[in-house]
Design a protein around this nucleic acid. Structure first.
Lengths: 198, 198
DNA sequence: CCCATCTCCAACTGATCCGTTGGAATTAGG
DNA sequence: CCTAATTCCAACGGATCAGTTGGAGATGGG
């Protein structure tokens, strides 16, 4: 069998992503990642460094993925509600990112890896909101940065505390009808939250 | 020194609460809890059972605490915005509960301990929202359960992903001005989200 | 004062975890 | 084909974890 280092790395990354999203930094073991990938553990260390470096790598790739699949254009042309809906859809189809972000927020304190690059990523969204405001599509009161954050919270919260969502709504996210119901609530809430009033 | 089992239990509970909130179920060790409390580890097992049972005990007590300090009356008389503000204030002053709820949502899948009692706790809030709607204080579209959830998300998200909040707003929650700014955004957002329109 | 009972703890067990090492298998260049 | 470099892996070391045990110290009723 010929060497295929790219494939080895890919399988290790995929296994690490799944394990970290499911169990978090503390709950994940390097042994389990290696076993899941069918690769020896030593490869993890030689390719990705230690556990924390591997977690940072995985999170960075997921952030790049969401940036690619929910482009800012979805804000330029459509309204805020549909932007929130697109974020909701991405989370529903791919709950990995939300879980990784939460694990990071809970497990690590202080500055996070690659914070400057990620800050730029968010600031681009803020800039898009500002532009929408100049077009008169947004109210003036919560400033753009706080508004972006609140809209993202509407879309993400469901996947962060699914047990609370289940207790409140009496249904689970596995139910397609309930999922659509939640999405509609998010879209409408984002419109009300951002839309110009009085 | 006379035996004081109540005090021993209280100190163990307090230490467990702090450790679980800081590090989560996986990141917390029974040794650290015992050492922090200055009590032998064996007392933890004889008083509270294993690690998971201890986590469930701690979370249950924090839920009871928030139910006592943010009563439903804050919804009956004031508006939704001030209710959201009160929840925000509770989280800011006592970030323990949000963190515990998140650890639970991430680390445990399937039904959570004491789910029926907690469901009742949330349904009471839904009922209060329904009453507000009958008074004409709420719009009709997102039904009460989903509305409660969204309002809670506005107040809680800041404390769940502080690293994202920092990157977006450029300030930290330690800054009192920024905290007030965030609170104001939450209050206004909740009003817009729930208030009757057109 | 005595003794059954409860509280407490130091030390242990067995398992697991992170990270490393020494060497075998494979590749590519000459 | 030969050799140096690279990829891979089984096995290990030291640390730490959850949970247990045997016994020392404190208590209270008779």
């Amino acid at each position: 069998m010929a060497w295929n280092t790219a494939e080895t790395r890919r399988r290790l990354r995929a296994a690490a992503t799944a394990e970290f999203a499911a169990h978090g930094p503390h709950g994940t073991t390097m042994d389990r990642i290696a076993r899941r990938a069918g690769i020896n553990k030593e490869r993890l260390y030689s390719y990705f460094g230690g556990k924390d470096a591997l977690f940072a790598t995985v999170l960075g790739e997921e952030l790049a993925a969401v940036a690619a699949t929910v482009p800012l254009a979805s804000l330029g042309e459509q309204d805020i509600g549909e932007f929130a809906g697109a974020v909701f859809d991405h989370h529903a189809a791919n709950p990995t990112l939300v879980r990784l972000l939460h694990w990071e927020g809970l497990a690590y304190s202080g500055p996070v890896p690659d914070e400057s690059a990620r800050t730029g990523f968010y600031l681009a969204k803020v800039e898009a909101f500002e532009a929408a405001r100049r077009r008169g599509a947004l109210a003036g009161s919560p400033d753009a940065a706080h508004l972006v954050f609140l809209v993202l919270s509407l879309a993400a919260w469901w996947f962060a505390v699914p047990q609370v969502a289940r207790m409140l709504t009496g249904a689970d996210a596995d139910d397609p009808g309930e999922l659509a119901h939640r999405r509609a609530a998010v879209v409408e809430a984002a419109r009300r939250l951002a839309g110009p009033h009085e």
